[in-house]
């Protein structure tokens, strides 16, 4: 019933697709009839189901059997409908370690965000603001590989020092709008290194 889309796969698999190295991904569309791909379908389903159950407990706050069974049914429906959205590739090995490393990245990001916001607030309330700002567009190329790492990097750029991501290409070409010289220069810098560490792409 659910046909999988090739553009939902991550970039490495798309590259494999292009170079003809099909491997397990079976042309990007694992047919459900294939027993092996059914097993591959199972892990994302199960993982999505568990995540959804956690979310349901936070949302619901009712622990009588009636509501819990409703929750299990709902989680099953969502996992059936959308597990290929949450985990587009069936490979889930090393995912937990990745999440743990990602959790260590967040405090650093928060620190950066607060610094950046103080900077922008200073600019906003400065009476001669028009002379301080000097908007320009910076282009650079990132070394990050996977889709998620690129998106995290782009969103972190948007949240931190006076910079907004204008566009990202699938190969990692960034265009960034920086509001003044001081904020645009240090890119990609330490943030890219930190994200690379968080996603295990050192």
């Amino acid at each position: 019933m659910w046909k999988r889309e090739s553009h939902l796969l991550d970039k490495k698999e798309q590259k494999n697709l292009r170079t003809g190295d099909l491997g397990n991904s079976n042309k990007g569309r694992p047919a459900i009839e294939n027993p092996q791909s059914r097993r591959l379908f199972f892990y994302p389903f199960f993982l999505t189901f568990i995540i959804m159950c956690g979310t349901w407990v936070v949302l619901s706050g009712k622990f009588d059997p009636f509501h819990l069974s409703l929750g299990l049914i709902s989680c099953g429906i969502v996992a059936y409908l959308s597990c290929d959205l949450l985990f587009p590739s069936p490979k889930i090995r090393g995912l937990l370690g990745q999440w743990a490393r990602f959790a260590r990245y967040i405090p650093w990001l928060m620190c950066e965000i607060i610094k950046a916001n103080l900077h922008v607030t200073y600019l906003v309330f400065h009476p001669r603001m028009m002379e301080l700002i000097d908007p320009k567009i910076v282009k650079f190329r990132s070394k990050l590989e996977s889709d998620l790492a690129l998106v995290t990097f782009a969103n972190s750029i948007t949240l931190t020092p006076g910079t907004i991501t204008v566009s990202v290409s699938i190969d990692g070409d960034f265009k960034v709008h920086a509001i003044d010289k001081a904020s645009g220069d240090p890119l990609p810098g330490a943030m890219e290194a930190n994200i690379a560490k968080a996603f295990g792409e050192v």
Binding site: I114, V124, P135, L159, I164
Partner: peptide, 26 residues
């Protein structure tokens, strides 16, 4: 407050997004 004032004060569309996107989130 910074976000609201920034949206009013900054000179063009791109620079207005800086306060709107960041200060409001924080």
């Amino acid at each position: 407050t910074g976000g609201a004032v920034g949206i009013l004060r900054f000179p063009d569309f791109y620079s207005r997004l800086h306060p709107a996107g960041k200060l409001d989130t924080l």
